[in-house]
Computed example of a mutant assay.
Amino acid sequence: MLRRKVFPTILGAASVLALGLPLALAQEGPPGITTQTVFKPFDPAAPACSPPPGLAKVLAFAQDNEREFMQGVDQGLAKAAKDRGLEYRRALANNDAAKGVEQVQLFLASKIGGLVAAPVDPASMSRSLQELIWSGAYVGTIVPPPATSLLNAPQYETGKVLAEAAAAYIKDKLGGKANVVILSHDSMEFLAPRFAAMRDVMKTLPDVKIVADISPSPVNKEGGFATMSTILQAHPDVDVVLGADTVVLGALAALEAAGKARPDQFLGGIDGEPEAVAAIKKGDGPYKASISLASPVFAYAMGQHAADWIEGKSIPQAMDILPVALTADFLAQYQADVADPASVYKDPKKRDLYLKMYGNICYDTRDQYVNFPWSSEAK
């Protein structure tokens, strides 16, 4: 039976002791693979190895915030845990990096068998994730290392797919001219290539002007609203807005509040968040495209890999989330897929639309965990 727990704020070592749990000892372990490495395709027939001893059959999620993309991760992990008979726990950091680290330390102390992490601040959480890996647990991360199994998207390609859709719209519907806003997230070095791709594509259009290129703070809907409201004071006529769905949705709200939203605008985001999908389905508004990174689908796969790890099976060292452009023709299939990620995972043809897996690792070879910013685009 699935038992789902949401951890409250954690006060560190004192609270761990108060809960009657032993303090985790930070014993030094292997550094993992620290140099850029190209992994072979995942071999599902690779030999199994030993299951990790002394760990609980628990899958946990260290969640950075409640944006819809991460809610999809939570849903996919919970479904995978239920299907594999694992207890599921979730700890929400609410964008508090220190709180996120403390929550991971509590998971370590309780000897969980698997963790998926979306760190608020990758650098501050890195050591705690290593300690979990050294304990023998599965550690899956969404983009930054270290991890036994690291998830990333081909970031440049993801940004390029969105920017090319916008460029085609500018040529076909706007006469080749546009004022463009890029709402970036360059402070997260692992995501920076997607915004480099957007700039590269826009530079190929001689009559396109990037009037603002800025990272909202925080990177969420509220941050997008505040940033776009400021931009509109200096540049009231904006034709194109590109970024992650969560900030572009905030920008849309700012355009509407200022009376500057137009049906002929092109607003496009990345993540395939439900609110963005709903805006695209309307068909008569500014929101024209979202690049799907299908979080329930990849999260379900990560949950399955965690369960496999706990059973001693070999799992991928790395996994690509493949960018899929959501169009009117594809929306129905996409919505069905994210509502039932188990069916996608079981169907290789469907799964290959969203995921590509690389390398092999298991408990016995855990010293080969990924400890560099892996990307399939790196050569």
Score class of each variant (00 low, 15 high):
residue 283 G to M: 06
residue 290 S to N: 05
residue 322 L to E: 01
residue 322 L to R: 06
residue 253 A to V: 04
residue 339 A to S: 15
residue 246 T to G: 07
residue 338 V to N: 11
residue 283 G to L: 05
residue 304 Q to N: 11
residue 314 S to R: 03
residue 346 K to Y: 11
residue 270 I to E: 00
residue 343 S to H: 14
residue 327 T to C: 08
residue 323 P to M: 08
residue 334 Y to E: 10
residue 250 G to Y: 02
residue 271 D to M: 14
residue 325 A to P: 08
residue 305 H to F: 14
residue 316 P to L: 07
residue 317 Q to Y: 04
residue 272 G to K: 07
residue 320 D to Q: 04
residue 272 G to C: 13
residue 338 V to G: 13
residue 326 L to Y: 07
residue 250 G to H: 06
residue 320 D to V: 11
residue 306 A to P: 07
residue 341 P to C: 11
residue 338 V to F: 10
residue 263 P to L: 12
residue 245 D to N: 06
residue 284 D to N: 13
residue 286 P to S: 04
residue 264 D to F: 05
residue 335 Q to E: 15
residue 275 E to C: 05
residue 323 P to W: 00
residue 252 L to W: 09
residue 282 K to I: 12
residue 316 P to S: 08
residue 331 L to N: 11
residue 342 A to G: 15
residue 275 E to P: 04
residue 330 F to T: 15
residue 280 I to Y: 05
residue 315 I to S: 06
residue 335 Q to L: 14
residue 282 K to W: 05
residue 331 L to E: 13
residue 343 S to A: 15
residue 276 A to G: 14
residue 297 V to G: 01
residue 285 G to Q: 10
residue 315 I to D: 02
residue 325 A to S: 13
residue 298 F to V: 14
residue 280 I to W: 05
residue 319 M to S: 13
residue 305 H to V: 02
residue 259 G to N: 01
residue 283 G to P: 04
residue 255 L to R: 03
residue 269 G to M: 06
residue 314 S to P: 03
residue 276 A to M: 12
residue 288 K to G: 08
residue 316 P to T: 04
residue 274 P to C: 12
residue 276 A to Y: 00
residue 303 G to M: 03
residue 306 A to R: 05
residue 314 S to L: 09
residue 344 V to S: 06
residue 262 R to V: 11
residue 285 G to D: 02
residue 269 G to Q: 04
residue 346 K to P: 08
residue 263 P to T: 07
residue 295 S to A: 13
residue 342 A to Q: 15
residue 339 A to H: 07
residue 262 R to G: 08
residue 255 L to Q: 03
residue 277 V to K: 11
residue 268 G to H: 03
residue 323 P to T: 07
residue 259 G to S: 04
residue 279 A to H: 06
residue 333 Q to D: 15
residue 293 L to Q: 05
residue 326 L to P: 08
residue 290 S to H: 04
residue 255 L to T: 09
residue 296 P to I: 06
residue 304 Q to E: 12
residue 329 D to Q: 14
residue 268 G to S: 09
residue 306 A to S: 11
residue 274 P to Y: 04
residue 306 A to K: 02
residue 315 I to H: 00
residue 322 L to A: 09
residue 286 P to R: 02
residue 326 L to V: 15
residue 310 I to S: 07
residue 289 A to I: 08
residue 277 V to M: 14
residue 253 A to S: 15
residue 270 I to V: 15
residue 259 G to P: 00
